[in-house]
């Protein structure tokens, strides 16, 4: 017996709603995929899913509907572990997929090697968004530690973006003070002393800063900041690109255990591979993520400011190590928060 959302889907309520849709496409197979993603990808995957549905329809004649679930990256990973039946996970950072492999045994441990570029088809930078005219004169990460600046960033315990933000500031401090971890901790503690709210996800933090008008500066994904700067409130904000920042590489993976039981192995893999095609990369760049494809990157180079990048592998020895040091229970972040309050 199968109940749950398949059961709900077959119930009379949904039958009424979807009956008309289904009757139009009786011959074509209707495939459903669930993409469990992190917070700021809402708009991007909405557009990408439509493009993939068209591509798949042309290629196989089947209709594919991709359902989206969004939230803080860590929270989403936890939900998948608790049984949220995702076909693909497109999360904020590799650690959150690693635990799906280690704890959940949902995919093989070498998942990062299955797709090009370490399974990260798009990248982003961690940047700063300030209010129009930059009233607090914020030019770089240093300025966030000043006592009169109010900083908005989400909670690293639940949000992937927040963990990139934390490491971006930490890495900046290491570079500035010649690798002095003690200095870096002091610096980052001063920043968290300036945070009035810690939202659960990056999008929540953006809404807090942009729509609720709280804070002087938002530490943000570049894609999220650029989306705000192209939206209807674009005149109220401006971008500050730090002199050096972290290269954020959000990974994608299909979950073997779930796709096998749903019978969606082929389409889930094709869905992620479509991210690497020129069409996919253009949608990526159009939504302000940095594309991997060199030609697409050149075409969209105007919208991304140049900066010095460091990676989590270079400075922190990879995500598993970084997570253990900084964000695990009793890690550095707990100290930072305790001393910063």
């Amino acid at each position: 017996m199968k109940i749950g959302y398949v059961g709900a889907f077959r119930s009379p309520w949904f039958g009424l709603l979807l009956g008309t849709v289904l009757s139009l496409s009786v011959q074509a197979k209707r495939i459903e995929l669930l993409n469990v993603s992190y917070d700021p990808t809402r708009e991007f995957y909405l557009e990408f899913n439509k493009a993939f549905a068209t591509y798949w329809k042309d290629k196989t004649g089947d209709d594919v509907v991709v359902n989206q679930s969004h939230g803080g990256s860590g929270k989403q990973a936890r939900a998948i572990l608790d049984g949220l039946s995702a076909d693909v996970a497109t999360l904020g950072l590799a650690y959150d997929v690693n635990i799906l492999a280690e704890k959940g045994k949902l995919l093989s441990a070498d998942w990062q090697k299955r797709l090009p570029d370490n399974s990260a088809p798009y990248t982003s930078a961690i940047v700063l968004l300030v209010r129009k005219g930059n009233p607090k004169g914020i030019k770089d990460f240093d300025d966030l530690a000043r006592p009169n600046v109010s900083v908005i960033t989400p909670n690293p315990k639940t949000s992937g973006g927040a963990r990139w933000n934390f490491l971006a500031a930490w890495g900046f401090a290491l570079k500035k003070w010649g690798g002095d971890a003690h200095k870096a901790q002091e610096f980052v503690t001063a920043i968290y002393k300036n945070t009035p709210v810690l939202d659960t996800g990056a999008r929540g933090a953006t809404i807090t800063f942009v729509e609720r008008g709280v804070g002087d500066v938002l530490i943000s994904w570049e894609n999220e900041a650029l989306e705000v700067l192209h939206g209807k409130e674009k005149d109220q904000f401006q971008l500050v690109v730090p002199s050096t920042t972290i290269l954020a590489e959000p990974p994608v993976a299909w979950l073997d255990k779930n796709t096998k039981s749903h019978g969606t192995e082929v389409v889930a893999k094709a869905y992620l591979e479509f991210l690497y095609t020129v069409k996919g990369q253009e949608i990526i760049a159009g939504n302000f993520y940095r594309p991997r494809n060199p030609e697409v990157a050149t075409k969209f180079s105007g919208q991304f400011a140049p900066t010095q990048f460091f990676t989590v592998d270079e400075l922190f020895g990879g995500w598993n190590k970084a997570h253990k040091t900084f964000f695990a229970e009793g890690g550095v972040f707990d100290d930072v928060l305790r001393n910063g309050r």
Binding site: M1, D82, S85, K103
Partner: peptide, 27 residues
């Protein structure tokens, strides 16, 4: 309910084996 019926929960493995979805679904 997540702790009881989630995949890592008390009844999780049994529900998983019988393909019954409670958490993250209508029930």
């Amino acid at each position: 309910y997540v702790v009881l019926f989630g995949r890592q929960g008390f009844f999780g493995p049994w529900l998983d084996a019988h393909d019954i979805h409670i958490i993250f679904a209508l029930p």
